[in-house]
Amino acid sequence: MAIRDRDKKKWQFAFGMPEIIKAHRDLWIDQNRIIKPIIDEYEKEEFDLRICYGMEFNLSVKIMIWSNGFTSELTGRIHYVDPISHQLRIELLEGEFRQIDFEDVIEVSVMD
């Protein structure tokens, strides 16, 4: 009894799989995006005061960042504020720094 093989037909759909998987992944990512919240001048001033307070007393600060439709949260100590380039430098761990743009900050709270 001979085995009937489908030759190329059985592998034909498998070559389209990476594109389908990528399309589903992109669709899922697009569905979970959020628009950037509008921050008014009073909130920005409150953020500045909290950042200055945390920097002055060397307290940990929790900063919520909006980036490309998603939010992330960083906790660390404010190391430096650069008013020229509009960036914060935050120390996440001992010796590990990250720079954040002022425009990306959507929430600041001081940890006690």
Rank of each mutant, 00 (worst) to 15 (best):
M1P: 01
M1T: 02
I3K: 03
R6W: 01
D7K: 15
D7E: 13
K8S: 09
K9M: 04
K9Y: 06
K10L: 03
K10F: 06
K10N: 05
K10H: 04
Q12P: 00
Q12G: 00
F13T: 03
A14T: 05
A14N: 04
G16L: 08
P18L: 05
P18F: 05
P18Q: 08
E19A: 13
I20H: 02
I21D: 10
K22E: 15
K22T: 15
H24R: 10
H24P: 00
D26H: 04
D26K: 08
L27N: 15
L27V: 06
L27K: 14
W28Y: 13
W28S: 13
D30F: 06
Q31I: 12
Q31K: 14
R33W: 11
R33D: 09
I34T: 06
I35W: 05
K36I: 03
K36E: 06
P37L: 11
I38K: 11
I38D: 12
I38Q: 11
I38R: 11
I39F: 10
I39Y: 10
I39A: 07
D40Q: 10
E41A: 06
E41L: 12
E43A: 05
E43H: 04
E45W: 06
E45Q: 11
E45K: 13
E46G: 08
F47N: 06
F47V: 13
D48L: 15
R50Q: 15
C52F: 09
Y53H: 09
G54Q: 03
M55S: 06
M55V: 03
E56M: 05
S60A: 07
V61M: 02
V61Q: 00
I63G: 02
M64P: 01
M64D: 06
I65T: 08
I65D: 09
I65R: 07
S67A: 10
N68K: 14
F70L: 10
T71E: 10
S72N: 12
S72H: 13
L74W: 11
L74Y: 14
G76N: 09
R77P: 02
I78V: 15
H79D: 14
H79S: 15
D82Q: 01
D82L: 02
P83Y: 00
S85K: 02
S85V: 00
S85Q: 00
Q87D: 01
L88I: 12
L88C: 07
E91L: 03
E91K: 05
E91M: 05
E91F: 02
L93F: 08
L93I: 02
L93D: 04
L93Y: 04
E94C: 01
G95K: 07
G95E: 04
E96H: 03
Q99D: 14
I100L: 15
D101M: 14
D101E: 15
F102M: 08
F102I: 06
F102P: 09
E103P: 03
E103W: 07
D104W: 03
D104S: 12
D104Q: 13
D104T: 03
V105F: 11
V105H: 12
V108N: 15
V110I: 14
M111D: 10
